[in-house]
């Protein structure tokens, strides 16, 4: 269910749900929820199922129940757009408020949600440092950044198996920094060999922790099935 590893020397647990837990501080981190992405497209006449927010919140609720964090940090792009709060279904809004109220909660702003909807609770930050040396941000920094945990990029990985290519969302890390998978039910992915992701890591390369149904799977860069550009 979880995999234990270190980012910049800090012990963390990567969860198969796509959440990251830091036991020392009791911090649960999720990235890119993209709440109300379905209704965002419905506005333009593309009627994606309106259940993505509920699906994402259900999954988040299960992760919170399992880890019992003292603090939840949403790593940005929690809402698909700045009007998303107004489109929240009352029941979803209620569930979200209850989740937020249960422990400390920080919304880190992202490029999709520069403003966080009112009335949900939690505090808002542009980035956050947690004890032990992790820096939580939405966008990755351009310089080598030891201890940085970011979202934004929605990494996924593909490997060749005997049944053909298998693709799954993944954590990407070189042990110094980490890119989180998107947690949102409708959040798509970018292959981690794309320079936007692979370029964040040094020549020593990186590893991907692919999210299976039940377990995580460690894949080295060499095993990834896609050409470098």
């Amino acid at each position: 269910m979880t995999a234990a590893l270190r980012v910049a020397g800090v012990a963390v647990l990567a969860d198969v749900s796509g959440a990251l837990f830091q036991p020392d501080t009791g911090t649960l981190i999720v990235a890119d929820l993209h709440l109300e992405k379905g209704s965002h497209f419905a506005r333009r006449g593309q009627f994606l199922p309106p259940y993505d927010t509920r699906a994402t919140l259900d999954r988040l609720m299960r992760a919170i129940r399992r880890f019992r964090p003292r603090h939840v940090v949403c790593l940005g792009d929690s809402f698909h757009d700045v009007d998303a709060g107004a489109r929240l279904d009352p029941a979803d809004r209620d569930l979200l408020r209850r989740l937020v109220a249960a422990q400390d909660w920080t919304w880190i702003v992202g490029n999709h949600d520069r403003e966080i909807p009112d009335g949900l609770g939690g505090s808002v930050a542009s980035a956050m440092d947690v004890a032990g040396g992790l820096r939580l941000t939405h966008l990755p920094g351009t310089a080598p950044a030891t201890g940085e945990v970011c979202g934004h990029l929605h990494p996924k990985a593909s490997i060749a198996t005997r049944a053909g290519r298998v693709t799954a969302a993944c954590f990407v890390t070189d042990g110094a920094r980490m890119v989180m998978p998107a947690f949102g039910a409708f959040a798509g992915g970018l292959d981690c060999l794309d320079p936007a992701i692979s370029g964040l890591f040094g020549p020593a390369g990186f590893r991907a922790l692919m999210l299976g149904r039940e377990r995580l799977h460690l894949v080295t860069r060499r095993q990834l099935a896609k050409p470098a550009k």
Binding site: I159, T161, G164, M210, R215, Q223
Partner: peptide, 22 residues
């Protein structure tokens, strides 16, 4: 291909299970 839908089984074969590493 065999059991093409069992993502964990396939990944287990191709990747290293993290339990070993842990």
């Amino acid at each position: 291909s065999v059991r093409g839908d069992a993502i964990d089984e396939l990944l287990d074969e191709a990747a290293r299970s993290l339990i070993d590493e842990a």
